[in-house]
């Protein structure tokens, strides 16, 4: 067998799928040809390299990192935990805001030609409520008052 023929049959030779007679003569050529035997060693080395690469495994914490990334991507907004006292005060504040709204509304309807005294009193009341209840959600009511002044 010539070198060119050996190279042409190299894949089948290495896979062991060459016909018996061809395989024998390829073997014979290999044992007597330094060039082809160097070539075989080179390809053996590639196979060994691939086998070593196949044995490598991912790091131990990689699953955690993937899950963290997924959580960041698909995180659902967590309900903001409100302190108990705010939860108790919230309905009170809503009720007060409603009462204020009614008061302001009725004042505004009566305000034609009436001095702004009543309105000032309402503002004082709101300030009183705000300072006593620590409620800062009266901004909108203030705006209503400003508009009415």
């Amino acid at each position: 067998m010539e070198c060119s023929q050996f190279k042409a049959n190299l894949i089948d030779f290495r896979q062991g799928t060459l016909e018996e007679e061809l395989h024998r003569s390829a073997n014979l050529h290999l044992s007597s040809c330094p060039s082809c035997s160097r070539l075989m060693k080179g390809l053996d080395e590639v196979d060994e390299l691939i086998e070593r690469e196949k044995a490598l495994d991912p790091g131990p914490f990689v699953a955690t990192r993937i899950l963290q990334r997924i959580d960041r991507e698909f995180e659902t907004p967590v309900a903001i935990k409100t302190p108990g006292w705010i939860r108790v005060l919230q309905p009170v504040a809503v009720a007060l805001a409603l009462i204020c709204g009614i008061l302001i509304g009725s004042n505004a309807s009566k305000s034609d030609g009436v001095p702004a005294d009543n309105l000032a009193k309402t503002t004082d009341n709101i300030e009183f409520l705000r300072s006593n209840l620590y409620i800062s959600d009266f901004m909108d009511e203030d705006k209503v008052l400003d508009l009415n002044k």
Binding site: L39, G42, L43, V46
Partner: peptide
């Protein structure tokens, strides 16, 4: 790959 690698690897070895 055989074409690309066999010489590189056998040369490499030398």
């Amino acid at each position: 790959l055989q074409q690309k690698l066999m010489y590189q690897f056998s040369e490499y070895k030398k």
